[in-house]
């Protein structure tokens, strides 16, 4: 009964990794896998975000729900998220989200006592768990250049204004609310394959060659100054805009270049909010996708129901 395997063995090559940025090549698989990974990275890899705010004192210019919303959007270090429980299926606290398995408590206390405006930032949030803290963008290896980082501004206070609150952060996914998405951007493109018909290209004058090269809105082609030949400067700059193909057609030289999208080769760009590392985001996405596949396996009772159906069918056919 065991069928033959149609499994693929994809290859992966990293081009660049930073804490919150990664570029890699994925080969020998199809667009459905590439797109599933992209979708899972954006909306199904869990992170931790503030989900409940109890305001004790708020005499700032922003109303309570405005502040609660801003707090929710603050990215928190979420290395713990994969191992945490969702509040809705936590049996330690019956889902009210107040226990250590499914929540992290934060406190914020700020008052402006002089004439200079006080910035209340994510650095004023005190966490009950030192592993779950607001993302610090002053990190040296981060792509964001912020030398005098003071955190993310939540509200500004003038003399006499005060803000005291307690917040509960919970595990969640981007599908529930975008504040839980670990991804700033996740994109992939098909790797382009460009052939130049050298013979036809040599029938062009220098001016025509330059015109052809300039017809691309992005720098895909260039001219070698030594031998005057058109060469592919960077195939990946091609945006599948067809401009060079239209130009070739207009010059009466169809087939001057041929451009194909390789169907099994993808270039990914991943940027995170800083909550989890870009490399970890891909690992978590693969893990989540595996869990999702496992959840859609047929259960014993669906198989049993079909067997009964089969017997009934056989019985009916047999008369």
């Amino acid at each position: 009964m065991e069928g033959v395997s149609y499994q693929r063995f994809p290859k992966i090559k990293i081009r660049e990794v930073k804490d919150d940025y990664m570029k890699f090549e994925l080969r020998e698989t199809d667009a459905s896998i590439a797109n599933a990974l992209r979708r899972v990275m954006i909306s199904e890899v869990p992170t931790i975000a503030i989900d409940l705010v109890e305001i004790e004192v708020n005499s700032s210019v922003l109303n309570d729900e405005f502040i609660a919303h801003r707090l929710g959007l603050v990215p928190l270090i979420s290395e713990r998220a994969m191992a945490m429980r969702f509040s809705r299926d936590c049996d330690a606290c019956d889902g009210d989200g107040q226990c250590e398995y499914c929540s992290v408590e934060f406190h914020l206390r700020a008052k402006c006592i002089n004439d200079t405006t006080l910035d209340v930032t994510s650095k004023d949030l005190y966490s009950s768990d030192h592993t779950v803290v607001p993302v610090d963008f002053s990190d040296a290896s981060s792509t964001i250049d912020n030398t005098e980082s003071r955190g993310i501004i939540i509200v500004k206070l003038r003399r006499g204004q005060e803000l005291i609150l307690r917040a509960i952060a919970r595990k969640g996914i981007g599908k529930d609310h975008a504040k839980w998405s670990p991804a700033a951007t996740v994109t992939f493109m098909y790797e382009p394959e460009i052939y130049i018909n050298e013979e036809l290209m040599e029938t062009l004058t220098m001016e025509e060659k330059q015109e052809f090269v300039d017809s691309s809105p992005t720098k895909v082609f260039d001219i070698n100054p030594r031998n005057g030949q058109v060469y592919v400067h960077n195939a990946e700059n091609y945006a599948y805009d067809d401009e060079v193909l239209k130009k070739a057609e207009a010059m009466g030289k169809p087939g001057l270049v041929e451009i194909h999208a390789k169907e099994d080769s993808f270039i990914f760009t991943v940027e995170t909010t800083g909550g989890i590392k870009a490399s970890q985001l891909l690992i978590n996405a693969i893990e989540i996708l595996k869990q999702k596949l496992d959840a859609v396996r047929l259960s014993a009772d669906t198989v049993e129901a079909d067997e009964q159906f089969g017997e009934l069918g056989a019985h009916m056919r047999g008369g």
Partner: peptide, 27 residues
């Protein structure tokens, strides 16, 4: 249909195992 469905899930699961392993080695 049931056999094909199960086979597809198994093959995808193994592909993702391979991908995870390949990525960790590459990293």
């Amino acid at each position: 249909p049931m056999q094909a469905y199960n086979q597809a899930i198994n093959d995808l699961d193994k592909e993702l195992d391979h991908l995870k392993n390949a990525f960790e080695v590459e990293l």
